[in-house]
């Protein structure tokens, strides 16, 4: 391809990405060195915001919480998505309907899905889950105030909203796997697990990598679900990084825009570190 052609083809996209993403990013970096609030000019304070962020114990606990949730949720997403995809793939005429039903939770916005989810667990709204728990005689679970119960609740809500995507992409990947291989795995009882593990899953490695990558990105940004599902996230140590940034910097009328921006920059660094393996792969693949 001639260089001119390449330029013409790429230019609009590059302009949009750089104009609408890089310029705002530069602004964020600039703010991160200032003491600033919306609508008024800031004053340069050097690395103060970064120092504030890094010495705040809440920041550390938010990082820990976010990383742990990301690892746990992504594992469930990949394994669960795989199992669901295999099950759905085995369906006949029912497949489109089942697939349509399973996609519903993916298309509901996170905040709203989170709220619907919370009503299942909240006694003030007649939470059905608690009724069932009572019915079978299990002890009461404090879904919103107990740290681990709440973590389970939040993780479940995130899995609920994201597993359809994982399932869908893996299902698409399974279409490329020879039918005989899948049939064999389905019929051969004890050996089927091994077939999946050692033959089928490796053959769609690329797909699984893609699912993992997208899931990591999305769970690291966890925010929407926490608003309805964790009303006292701060107190029970279930504050995600984005929620922390939102709480610290923007809840109070954007008074701490500088601090919030510094935290955003740190979060971006964390994301880049977690994505490094994928970035390396991309670079390698792009050159070939």
């Amino acid at each position: 391809m001639r260089r001119r052609e390449y330029l013409y083809l790429v230019a609009p996209s590059v302009l949009v990405m750089f104009g609408l993403l890089v310029i705002p990013l530069v602004r964020t970096i600039q703010w991160s060195f200032e003491r600033v609030r919306y609508g008024s000019p800031g004053t340069f304070v050097g690395l103060d915001n970064y120092r504030d962020a890094l010495t705040d114990p809440r920041f550390g606990s938010a990082v820990a919480f976010t990383v742990v949730v990301t690892i746990a949720v992504v594992s469930v997403l990949v394994v669960g998505g795989y199992v669901l995809a295999v099950l759905v793939n085995g369906l006949g005429k029912m497949r489109p309907i089942v697939l349509g039903l399973l996609l519903v939770s993916y298309v509901v916005p996170g905040l709203i899905g989170g709220t619907m989810f919370s009503w299942l667990f909240n006694d003030n709204f007649g939470g059905i889950v608690n009724q069932v728990i009572r019915l079978v005689g299990l002890p009461e679970v404090l879904w919103f105030t107990d740290t681990w119960a709440n973590r389970g609740l939040v993780a479940a809500a995130v899995v609920w909203s994201m597993i359809p995507f994982a399932m869908l992409v893996i299902l698409a990947g399974l279409q490329g796997v020879p039918k005989e291989m899948l049939e064999a795995a389905r019929m051969d009882g004890a050996g089927s697990l091994r077939t999946h593990w050692s033959v089928i899953a490796p053959s769609i490695r690329g797909v699984l990598g893609f699912v993992t990558l997208i899931s990591i990105m999305d769970v690291l940004r966890l925010f929407d679900q926490l608003i309805p599902l964790s009303p006292q996230a701060v107190q029970i140590g279930n504050e995600s990084l984005v929620l922390y940034i939102y709480n610290r910097a923007f809840l109070d009328g954007g008074q701490q825009l500088g601090l919030g921006s510094a935290m955003n920059v740190l979060l971006i660094l964390l994301i880049v570190v977690m994505l490094l393996p994928f970035i390396r792969d991309t670079a390698r693949e792009g050159r070939s």
Partner: peptide, 21 residues
């Protein structure tokens, strides 16, 4: 009070009364 009372806003308190809790 309900063990989760620190998650109650006023609408939740209304629900507590509405529901006879």
């Amino acid at each position: 009070m309900d063990p989760q009372v620190t998650t109650f806003d006023q609408p939740s308190v209304q629900q507590q009364m509405y529901n006879g809790d």
